[in-house]
């Protein structure tokens, strides 16, 4: 059974067709890249999958369950987590709290137990604090646990955002331009990092990226979007020489 199966997804904003009849199947443990020029509808696709927007038409099934129409936190509970193109951490909260918030769905106690600090409260808080700390140790962010997330350097903010997403224990991780603003050296270490995450947390990953070096280096399969529609799909090497893709990026060849 495919992990994620999207059929005929179409999404319109005020008549503008951001995603047009998108079809996609994802097997467990794949690492797929989505590329395409600016405004091709890549981030919109992530928003549709995670429930930020509701698809105008089409169905998305995750592990056999329909997720169109579910709220973001329900979809997250099923096992989809993401990061954002323009890092969206809880900036004024500590690094630790950023991660602890992502355990919201994993903590089991009632509001009354929370208000009076009784019952399962103490045990659960202890358990979650431990889990959060372990995650921070894995990501080598533990020394910064008490620092406000917004004051971290850019690279660490990216890292924390991925840690936060992994705290929700996803089966599928969506990374929205993780290499944005990185130099070539940083991109190489990011490639290793993503591979490591995939192995350590055994997650399936979809990646939106502009950095060809990154995409070509780690993705097993690529999907190319332009004007909301898939124009090519296949192995990185195949995509590289696809005339349609070149056209989308560089414009049509002019015959003189």
């Amino acid at each position: 059974m495919p992990l994620l199966e999207a059929k005929h997804i179409t999404h319109r904003f005020d008549g503008l067709c951001a995603v047009d009849d998108f079809n996609f199947t994802l097997a467990p443990h794949e690492l797929v890249g989505i590329i395409g020029p600016n405004g091709a509808g890549k981030t919109t696709l992530f928003n549709l999958i995670t429930g930020v927007y509701r698809a105008t038409e089409g169905t998305i099934q995750f592990s056999g369950k329909e997720i169109v129409g579910q709220t973001p936190h329900q979809i997250n509970k099923l096992g989809i987590a993401r990061t954002f193109q323009n890092i969206r951490l809880f900036k004024e909260l500590t690094v630790l709290d950023n991660v602890r918030i992502a355990y919201y769905g994993k903590i089991i106690y009632s509001p009354l137990e929370a208000l009076l600090h009784i019952g399962r409260f103490r045990a659960e808080e202890k358990r979650i604090a431990g889990m959060a700390m372990e995650l921070l140790i894995i990501f080598k962010l533990d020394d910064l646990a008490n620092v406000a997330a917004g004051s971290l350097p850019y690279g660490l903010q990216r890292k924390l955002e991925i840690a936060r997403a992994l705290a929700t224990e996803p089966k599928l991780l969506l990374l929205d331009e993780p290499a944005a603003g990185m130099n070539p050296n940083e991109i190489i270490s990011l490639m290793e990092f993503i591979g490591w995450i995939r192995k350590t947390f055994s997650v399936t990953i979809i990646l939106i990226e502009h950095q060809m070096r990154l995409v070509m280096g780690i993705c097993e399969r690529l999907v190319v979007l332009d004007f909301g529609a898939t124009i090519a799909e296949g192995l990185p090497a195949q995509i590289q020489n696809n005339p349609k893709v070149m056209e989308a990026y560089l414009g049509e060849e002019v015959k003189i």
Partner: peptide, 19 residues
Amino acid sequence: RGVLSIREDEIAASLMSVN
């Protein structure tokens, strides 16, 4: 912490499992 996350970024909060 959910209340705080709503102040910081409601959409990100809901995507991080906060009801």
